[in-house]
Write a protein that binds this DNA or RNA. Structure first.
Lengths: 368, 368
DNA sequence: GGCCCCTGCTGAACGGTTTCTGCAAGATCT
DNA sequence: AGATCTTGCAGAAACCGTTCAGCAGGGGCC
């Protein structure tokens, strides 16, 4: 059956009308598929007339090359992964949401500008989705040495660039990070210059390089200037713990007269704690925290923040990754250190003394 | 040449050592590639022993199926697109950054939870990247009728779900939106209840449905309660224009004693403008704005905000999209209207006059 | 005139998986 | 014992571009 004499096409008669393939275009244009491919991709040796003709026929048929087929053949998907640590169900940690959002936005832009699209993936390499998406390369934010994600990717030959120094000896192709020591030192100096005598630190208990480097820099600074360290550490992924730690820090007998908080919500938490203890900011307590949130421009008082410049980081990371994918740039690992920006607001500057008389206050005064 | 007697494999001798393919696994396990595929995907009729054996060999060889090949064969990539309007170079509009960030985050989570990954794409369908990525479906935020993106996607058979009612008669498979009329009315009622006599609106000049619906609802409310409309419209994508418009609104001869701002930065802008004109908030001016930014909890005073609940929207949109992709759920277009949330803070509540002796309290007063 | 090169185009292999069809051998039933 | 069913597995097509190798014909060169 179906042996009816229509010998015009060797393709099955009942072919689905779904989408035009390159073979359909070739047939309609009266050329070979090679010619179609070359014409559409600007390759081969073809006169302009042929190119135009093929392009026109392709347009008429609404031809869209199959990305999957192209990826399979060329080994390039045009996709780069962005993987972020996951606590619970949500990607992005709560405490560093603004950072990740900005960084991801910049990374997306940078990727798009170079013709790549960005896919957001969970940090656990065990998630199914990793197996189902063809990646040309991956950006890993704060890679941990726990998860074998990076090693696994590298083993598969996928270029990996990390935001943050890789822990241990992870074989990333490049990394980008801030100069955290320098940042902490500049803040401590800034606070000292504003009149701080005892600077406290609100830090984290986790072992990521950001926390470690910052804390170490603080301790070294204390040693150098001869100040006793005054700090509280808490699990940074727990938003409530931050408020408690801020409270602890300000209720200590050796209460600091200036505090730097390493995490985004610390500003709010410290402000609230200061209010509880009747401390005026900046008169009784100078405040700086690391944050990308613009909200600290509108608090009372506005809080000085350290920006890690996630936009720059996201852009740089993607550039390095795509360079690695495309084989341009140096073959050896690249390490790029980016500056931070201290946005100075009222909370870290002593007011010109208007009322002078402000006796030392005891702790535990309500919201007078 | 190379005719040396090793007839063990018909594959070329110098095969690259790159990655093990399904054929390698089949050869190593002494079975056919069909058996490998079935064993690994839990299909076919195979005894457990064979399944285990194949799995073990695959593990030993570090076999990872090629996502590209699978996509080519099955027509499923496991990728869904999220496309956002682009102003200039950055994806996400500046004014609604927090909204998009939260929405994208929720969408990413929801997609991941169902085994899909999310790709962020530019709103212009002309961008090359659209042709290079195989999408199972797309979420479009605030689709405009200018860009033929949606029609083009639908023509290609790609399911499309939109966040925001589609303008014109775009053939989306489903949409999700807030009940903007209801939201505006509830805010106006809230402000009235707080003592507002003349409520102003800070709105936009663009023609998207959010702006249109909200403005219309305001005008109708004014007509119903017999208030003369007092509003200023400005191009919402221009951050400076917002500050100017806020200033204009508060400098009018018929100055409102309460204002609702449709866009995220309006709260800050109105607060600054109020300060310039010596207006105390909430005593002289009640303020509400639509925002997802947590920063308004920390301003002085804290500002009441309307949240569009981008998390819910992002989740819902992705669920609908994946339902459409997988063919579950209703075949006909779905329209889902989500509630908003009014987060009441000091800026929209007349302060209880503390200096006076507290009058008899009515029911439902706050935390006494 | 013979040789070589250049132009314009084509055939066919290739990439790696999924899946339909089908076959042989053993088990079960009558 | 023969018919039928089930089990366990294999062969090969299909998915759809890209690209290597090469062919025919025309022109230029010595």
């Amino acid at each position: 059956m179906t042996a009816a004499g229509n010998d015009q096409a060797s393709r099955p008669v009942g072919r689905r009308l779904e989408r035009a393939g390159i073979r359909d275009v070739a047939a309609a244009a009266g050329v070979s598929i090679t010619t179609v491919s070359d014409a559409l991709n600007g390759k081969g040796r073809l006169p302009d007339a042929t190119r135009r003709h093929v392009r026109e026929v392709a347009d008429r048929l609404g031809y869209r090359p199959s990305a999957a087929a192209r990826t399979l053949r060329t080994g390039r998907s045009g996709l780069i992964g962005l993987t972020v640590t996951t606590y619970g169900e949500e990607p992005f940690t709560f405490t560093e949401f603004a950072y990740f959002a900005e960084m991801a936005r910049a990374a997306t832009s940078a990727a798009l500008a170079r013709g790549y699209a960005l896919v957001i993936l969970p940090a656990s390499s065990r998630h199914d989705v990793w197996a189902n998406v063809a990646l040309d390369g991956t950006v890993v934010i704060d890679p941990s040495d726990q998860d074998p994600l990076v090693s696994e990717l590298v083993r598969q030959g996928v270029p990996v660039v990390s935001d943050g120094r890789p822990a241990g000896s992870l074989p990333v192709h490049a990394w980008v990070d801030n100069d955290h020591e320098e940042a902490v030192l500049s803040i401590l100096d800034h606070l000292s210059a504003a009149g701080a005598r005892r600077i406290g630190l609100l830090t984290g208990t986790s072992t990521d390089t950001y926390t470690k480097l910052s804390t170490t820099a603080y301790l070294e600074w204390c040693e150098r200037v001869g100040q006793e360290p005054v700090y509280e550490a808490y699990p940074a992924h727990d938003p409530c713990a931050g408020a408690v730690a801020a409270d602890r820090l300000l209720s200590r007998p050796d209460r600091p007269d200036a505090v730097y908080g390493l995490f985004d919500p610390n500003g709010t938490d410290l402000l609230a704690a200061a209010r509880r203890y009747g401390l005026r900011v900046p008169d009784d307590l100078l405040l700086v925290c690391c944050s990308e949130s613009g909200g600290y421009a509108g608090t009372d008082p506005p809080i000085t923040t350290l920006s890690l410049q996630p936009r720059r980081i996201g852009t740089a990371v993607v550039q390095l990754l795509i360079d690695a994918i495309e084989g341009v740039g140096p073959a050896h690992p690249v390490q790029q250190v980016m500056p931070t920006e201290l946005i100075i607001r009222a909370s870290s500057q002593r007011r010109p003394h208007r009322t002078t008389v402000s006796p030392p206050r005891g702790p535990g005064r309500g919201q007078g």
